[in-house]
Structures are given as C-alpha cells and as structure tokens.
C-alpha cells in the first residue's frame, strides 16, 4: 500500500508523537505540533497511539491512493474531498485505489492531520518517524513532502473501518483570537517594570514567519530589558544572556521587538533571555494559529498551569470515551 503525493501543499511532513531524549545534543522533540489532533486522527482509523500521520500546514496537499484505505482528517477546519466530493472531518472514511484526496481552504486553524489506517511507514530514526527538517532527519528522507514522493503505509488494524467519529461537541474549534496562558519566569526579572505589564496588556498578532521552530508575534509594544553591565560571555544587548537551553514553549524577545514562542522543532538553546513559558496545555492551540490571528498572554502560576494540564487530559479522555 502506498500514497503518491501529487501536490505537496505549502509544508506537509510526516509526524508522530515525537523524538524525546536528544535535546541535549540539539535534536528537538519534533512530532505533530497539535498532539491532540494527532492522537484523535490515529484513534479514528484504529492505529496505535503515536503512529505516523501527515501534518499539512495552511494549504492541504493532493494525495493519490494506490490501494484502498481507511482515512481520517482532524485538526484545522479544511474540508477534505475525495475525487471532489466532500468528506467529513473528525470521522473515518474509506478511499479506493485511484482516489484523490484534496482539501478546501483552511477556514480556521493552521494544521490538518491525515491519518491512514496502518500509519505512514517510513523508517523510525532514534525511535520516531517525525521529520526534523533543519537537521534533515527522520520522516520522508528528512524533508517536507514534494510532488512525486511515494509514501509507504503499514498494515491496517482489523478494527479499522469507516464511520468512526467522536461526539461533535468534544471536537476542538479554532478561534481567530485567543488567550495563551504563560508561567512567567526564567529571565522575566530582566524586563523593566513597564514591559512586564505591557507584555500581558497588549494584543499580539501572529507573524507570517511563524513555523514549526517558533511562533513569532508582533504589533505589541516594544519590550525593554533592564540596563546592566552585561555578564562575561553574554552578548552586548540587554536582551542577551550566556547561551542557555530553551524550554519548549519558552518565549524569547530578541532585541525586545517580537516575542517568539519555541515549538516542537525548537532551536535547543541560544543567547536570548526567555521571559516565561506557555503552559503545555496551550501548545496545541498555538499550533492551530494562522498568521494574522490574535493572542493575548495571560499570566498563571504553577497551580494554574497544572490545572490547565488536568483539564486538557480530561477533555481528551472524554473525547476518546465518545468514540463510536
């Protein structure tokens, strides 16, 4: 069984649950930016948790199936079509050999996930099939998909069938404006008193450069760092520190201009002061933000972060329980 890529879309890559354990050598987690949508897609087609899927960003691909398959599309609000006929999102459907899967405009959300029963069967590297494009590692020959690529698919589980779906009210929606919860910390104390306030007061717009490495935001007021005699080994700008490891979700503001939230293809470290970290429960929501969408940052403490995490888990569990 194989799938041929007729048109790759803007940036479509093979992703799974990620590749932990190598961040200390500069190899980031990678994996589906929206893990909720990844797991949902795999459940719908009867795959094991963490099977590899296709992640399509902002513009869906055109795919030709060379054999019959069970498929599910989750994530962004982009209607899938088989040979031009509409198919539901968040519900498994069957395709025949020779069928073409295409996508309508991404009306909301930024990433669609395409799971195929059996999973995309590229070779696992360091325990994962995820693509890390900066390091030309994993996925389909280490890069995003191109026209003409032929993707191998594994054997479908016996339970794979069309028509599996979740309760409709448990499927996430993707607003164009949202709040992201941030645990201030790391080098937050380096901001001036004024900037420590304006960061949370302003509405920030997703920049067109936002990608798997980091989400860049603009149009808030410039953030100022406290003046000091820079420590030995730190750069000359007050936003610089001695190069350090960057947490996933951490927010850096090079030169005080545009906050960047590092995502799953993060650069693992560098010399820009991080002013806080987006809570783990909101990382999937960042993944679904389109350029020009709006965000406000809301400060939470650790209890708030853990509560958000528990809520995320229970929402996911309810969705899984509603699978029919």
């Amino acid at each position: 069984m194989a799938i041929e890529v007729i048109k790759p879309g803007l940036a479509t890559s093979v992703q799974d649950a990620g590749r932990p354990g190598y961040y200390h050598l500069g190899i980031p987690l990678s994996g589906a930016l929206d893990q909720y949508a990844l797991h949902a897609a795999n459940l719908l087609v009867g795959n094991e948790e963490g099977a590899a899927v296709l992640e399509a960003t902002l513009l869906g691909p055109e795919l030709l199936f060379r054999a019959p398959a069970i498929v599910a599309v989750t994530g962004a609000e982009a209607t899938p079509k088989v040979n031009g006929e509409t198919r539901p999102r968040n519900e498994s459907f069957a395709v025949r050999a020779g069928d073409r899967l295409t996508f309508d405009y991404m009306k909301a959300g930024a990433r669609s996930y395409v799971a195929v029963a059996g999973g995309i069967d590229v070779p696992p590297i360091l325990g994962s099939r995820s693509t890390y494009a900066l390091g030309a590692l994993g996925g389909f020959v280490g890069r995003k998909l191109a026209a003409g690529d032929v993707l191998p698919v594994g054997s479908a589980a016996a339970s794979a069938r069309p028509g599996r779906a979740f309760a409709a009210d448990l499927v996430p929606t993707y607003p164009k404006s949202l709040e992201l919860r941030v645990l201030p910390g790391l080098y937050f104390h380096r901001l001036t008193e004024e900037s420590a306030k304006t960061f949370f007061e302003d509405t920030w717009t997703v920049a067109p450069e936002a990608d798997r490495i980091g989400y860049r935001y603009r149009k808030g007021r410039t953030l100022k760092f406290r003046e000091r005699k820079q420590p030995f080994g730190a750069g000359s700008d007050p936003s610089n520190i001695v190069d350090a490891g960057y947490p996933y979700g951490s927010i850096q503001v090079p030169g005080g201009l545009e906050p960047i939230i590092l995502h799953r293809d993060a650069v693992s470290g560098g010399g820009y002061a991080m002013i806080g970290t987006v809570v783990s429960a909101d990382m999937d929501r960042i993944a679904q933000m389109q350029p020009n969408n709006l965000a406000r940052f809301v400060a939470v403490d650790m209890d708030g972060a853990l509560k958000a995490r528990a809520d995320y888990r229970s929402r996911f569990a309810r969705m899984v329980a509603s699978l029919r």
């Binding site: 803007l10 902002l58 513009l59 930024a110 067109p208 350029p291 020009n292």
Partner: peptide, 9 residues
C-alpha cells in the same frame, strides 16, 4: 480571485 493562503499579499 481568492487567496489560497493566509499571510501578507
């Protein structure tokens, strides 16, 4: 003519 993508025109 519709925009295929979000971004800057």
């Amino acid at each position: 003519v519709l925009s295929p993508l979000p971004g800057i025109f």
